[in-house]
């Protein structure tokens, strides 16, 4: 009996030793040299693997950072300037400051604003619906409301509002990785400069139709009238294909354009309420 135990022990140990030798040999023979800096840089990154930097994941981004000499075009939207400063320290370089951005949904086609003209009964995937037809309303540019952008968001920064049937971005959670921008088949979501207190003014419409049909399809469509462009002192507003666009890098958030918009396509968010004309006059009188 004891011999059986002995043989078992010996044979198993022998097997173990042989396997260990093989593994050691293979590991040393096929070792791939990797810059240890890559590991260090990767550790400094947020490990979200969101692809917001344009690389497949944080590891690839770290490799690119180590390989390149400058930080030009390389930035981590999730970690922002802090992370990039950390990376710069590891690599012994200077990191340029990048202005933080935030995603904005440029469609306000709630059921109240945009009348439904058909009913979609297919797979709940925006790209499938987009390739099939113009969508449930007469607007062929606006949000389809099937939430592919929400599915694409890795940071729980988006949800579908069941009342407006539009996606909503939670500013505090949005890291501007751009996943939703890529997911949207209609290019409705835009990454805009993040302003103080998350204030934003933007044209909440992407309809390129002429005024008449655009207005017919949606009550708050941009009709490309150009009034906002006229009042803008900073050349921030351009009009192309019957559609106004406010460049967030030029906009100074002066709030002049919003009141002149005849359809209410320009939205102001996170601003204190405007003083009405009466209170303004009253204030004047007091002064």
């Amino acid at each position: 009996m004891s011999s059986v135990v002995l043989i078992t022990i010996i044979s198993l140990s022998l097997l173990g030793v042989i396997a260990a030798l093989i593994l050691y040999f293979v590991a040393s023979k096929f070792k791939v040299y990797e810059d240890p800096l890559i590991d260090e840089v990767e550790a400094a990154l947020p490990a979200a693997n969101c692809g917001g930097c344009g690389f497949a994941g944080c590891r690839n981004f770290a490799e690119a950072l180590v390989k390149s000499d400058t930080f030009e075009g390389l930035s981590c939207p999730v970690g922002g300037n802090e992370t990039m400063a950390l990376v710069a320290k590891i690599l012994g370089r200077e990191a340029p400051e990048v202005e933080p951005r935030v995603a904005v949904v440029r469609c306000n086609g709630t059921p109240g604003h945009r009348k439904k003209t058909s009913r979609y009964d297919g797979e709940l995937n925006c790209t499938i619906a987009h390739n099939l037809y113009r969508g449930e309303t007469d607007c062929q540019y606006g949000c389809l409301g099937l939430g592919e952008c929400v599915d694409a968001c890795d940071f729980d920064a988006m949800y579908m509002d069941s009342k407006t049937e539009l996606p909503v971005i939670i500013d505090d959670k949005c890291v501007a990785c751009g996943a939703c921008v890529r997911a949207c088949p209609r290019d409705i979501i835009e990454l805009r400069k993040r302003a103080r207190k998350d204030r934003k003014i933007f044209v909440s419409c992407v309809n390129k139709d002429k005024g008449g049909p655009a207005r017919k399809a949606c009550a708050v469509a941009c009709i490309g009238c150009g009034k906002c462009q006229e009042v803008c002192n900073f050349d921030a507003i351009t009009i192309e294909n019957n559609l106004a666009f406010i460049d967030s890098d030029k906009c100074k958030l002066c709030r002049k354009c919003e009141p002149v918009c005849p359809t209410g396509a320009i939205l102001e968010i996170n601003f204190p309420p405007r003083k009405s004309e009466q209170t303004k006059e009253a204030e004047k009188a007091e002064a």
């Binding site: 297919g122 797979e123 995937n125 790209t127 499938i128 390739n131």
Partner: peptide, 12 residues
Amino acid sequence: RPLLDYIRLGKA
């Protein structure tokens, strides 16, 4: 299952 819906998408 919406097989063709997705195949069409994949084809695109």
